[in-house]
Nucleic acid binder design. Structure first.
Length: 521
RNA sequence: GCCCCCUUCGUCUAGUGGCCCAGGACACUGGAUUCUCAGUCCAGAAACGGUAGUUCAAAUCUGCCAGGGGGUACCA
């Protein structure tokens, strides 16, 4: 039985790279009828865990990655919080000490630092020489009498090779002699990550440790721990990390400011901020950002689109197939086809996937998705607004890339709207017959029934025939006058949705504006 | 510095010795269609880090070099 795990720290946000690691773990488990476990690495005390964990669990639920064991679902190996498992780590630490695989060490942080600095000065690699190792209880007592702090260190082998057969990297070798005597327990008795992680993976029966490649160099010491304890090795798969947009360094939540200099990243962020601002969504610098999963949920992305995009960041089926439903991902994913090299996060391609996924949705679903955004932005105040929303979403068609884009069509809902200056100049000021035609058309439109777009098309067509002009001689001016925009969807649909009153008012408004701002030349 | 990993179009990738003067996708450019925008269709530009070998034949194998990255914690 394949059992995989993802182990987030409760920091209050779910990193996009983390989501990808989690996805690969989840896929691996699901495709074989295995299990996916969520374990919380909250060894850092002093933080309100439940509060900081919630956004992460919400993220998982939103993405549809369910976990078989972990927070809020419990399970046979509970607790799944490392902070509640210290007793267990303590036992393991003692076992390691008793078997001679670990030793008590009494070096002070200052002494260590001095040695480290000295080694660096000589251009050498620091290597702890076990100077303050207590080999006997007497020695330990003596050190303790001096008031020295006690840590527990791994007594790493000084010769031989550690061979790891990694599922994505193949065989990787490390010389034991290069490994440091890692500290596994602090003076206060708390245990460190490497110990905790190994114990938990063993206790939870994790069969496949699938994690980011920054853990690869840590693996030998973890293997040392687990073999010293007599545990079986899990299978390892070290994933390439997700790199920053336009770069090759690891995508980091600490470098948000830097990414804003990336054009594509900045555009995505700006798009999100625009939606958030109008919908009154709190924009916290820490979480409202394309590196964090919450961002996408807030502005109306489809979880499947994100999953699909992330899947392709480091994995491919065949170089041709790009679109996968979640079921297909589960069925077709193979750890063997995970790439070795880092993949950089490309906001543009993510948007392309999202736009595609959104367009695939049935109309009713798209309406449903846009509804909350329209509501929060105050577009749905009039009684017939819901009905209008349905028409607008239908008319907008694939111009809507994400649910929050509905705000681009606010001019259908609000009395107030703004004219795009450039379009106004080009379509209304410049063509010399635009204004007379608009006046003429306004008069005609006042007699026309607006209930059907087809009807409007006929009427306006006839209007053009009568005046011996072409449709395009007038239609652009109408668009700008009634929507303020250079582009938009079908003009007759637009007019029908807008309704007669608004259309006439707006033409009047446009004419007034033209009178004041168009400079005759 | 030391250890480890990685290196095909701008980006994600296909490619496991001949099918590759390198295929697909996003983005980009041009054209067609339309009332605009979006879309769609067609076309185009765009890559095997370098080098020395092995071989009849190398993006694919080997060595070296270079570049990038990760790790090097009483962080995870």
């Amino acid at each position: 039985m394949i059992r995989t795990r993802f182990a987030p720290s409760p920091t209050g946000y779910l990193h996009i790279g983390g989501v990808r690691s989690a996805l690969f773990n989840w896929l691996l488990a699901r495709q074989s009828g295995g299990q996916f476990i969520l374990r919380i690495d909250d060894t850092d005390a002093g933080r309100n865990v439940s509060e900081a964990l919630q956004p992460i669990l919400d993220g998982f639920r939103w993405l549809g990655m369910d976990w078989d064991e972990g927070p809020e679902v419990a399970g046979p190996h509970a607790p799944y919080y490392q902070s509640q498992r210290s007793q267990r780590y303590q036992e393991a630490a003692e076992q390691l000490l008793a078997s001679g695989h670990a030793y008590r060490d009494y070096a002070t942080p200052d002494e260590l630092k001095a040695e480290r600095d000295a080694a660096e000065k000589k251009g050498e690699r620091f290597f702890y020489d076990r100077q303050w190792m207590a080999e006997t209880d007497e020695q330990a007592a003596a050190f303790e009498a001096e008031g020295r702090p006690r840590t527990l260190r791994l007594k790493m082998p000084r010769e031989g090779t550690c061979i790891i057969n990694d599922l994505v990297r193949g065989e990787v070798q490390f010389e034991w002699a290069q490994e440091q005597d890692t500290v596994i327990q602090r003076p206060d008795g708390s245990c460190l990550y490497h110990l905790a992680s190994v114990i938990d993976d063993h206790d939870f029966n994790i069969s496949h440790v699938v994690r980011a490649e920054e853990h690869l160099p840590n693996t030998p010491r973890q293997i040392f721990i687990l073999e010293s304890l007599g545990y079986e090795r899990p299978q390892y798969a070290h994933l390439p990390y997700v790199a920053e947009p336009g770069g090759s360094a690891k995508l980091s939540k600490r470098k948000l400011a830097k990414y804003e200099n990336n054009k594509d990243f900045a555009q995505l962020l700006a798009r999100g901020r625009n939606i958030a601002e109008r919908c009154d969504i709190p924009v916290e610098a820490d979480t409202f950002n394309p590196v964090i999963i919450d961002f996408y949920r807030e502005i109306g992305f489809e979880p499947e689109a994100i999953l699909n995009y992330l899947l392709l960041l480091g994995w491919s089926l065949d170089g041709e197939t790009e679109k996968f439903t979640v079921d297909e991902m589960v069925k077709l994913f193979t750890i063997e086809r995970v790439n070795k090299s880092p993949a950089s996060f490309d906001p543009k391609k993510l948007i392309a996937f999202q736009g595609d996924a959104f367009a695939q949705l049935p109309l009713a679903t798209r309406i449903e998705r846009t509804q909350p955004f329209a509501a929060r932005a105050g577009l749905l105040r009039s009684p017939e607004a819901e009905e209008k929303l349905a028409k607008v979403v239908a008319g907008a068609d694939d111009r809507l890339k994400m649910a929050g884009d509905i705000l681009d069509f606010d001019y259908f809902f609000l009395d107030e709207f703004t004219f795009n200056d450039k379009a106004f100049n080009k379509r209304i000021c410049k063509p010399q017959n635009a204004r007379p035609l608009l006046i003429e058309l306004r008069g005609h439109l006042a007699q026309v029934d607006f209930s059907s777009a087809d009807q409007l098309e006929q009427e306006i067509g006839q209007f053009c025939v009568n005046l011996e002009i072409e449709l395009k001689d007038i239609i652009h001016a109408i668009r700008v006058a009634t929507t303020g925009q250079a582009g938009g969807f079908g003009m007759f649909d637009t007019l029908a949705i807008l309704g007669k009153d608004r259309v006439l008012d707006r033409i009047d408004e446009a004419l007034e504006r033209a009178a004041t701002i168009c400079t005759d030349s």
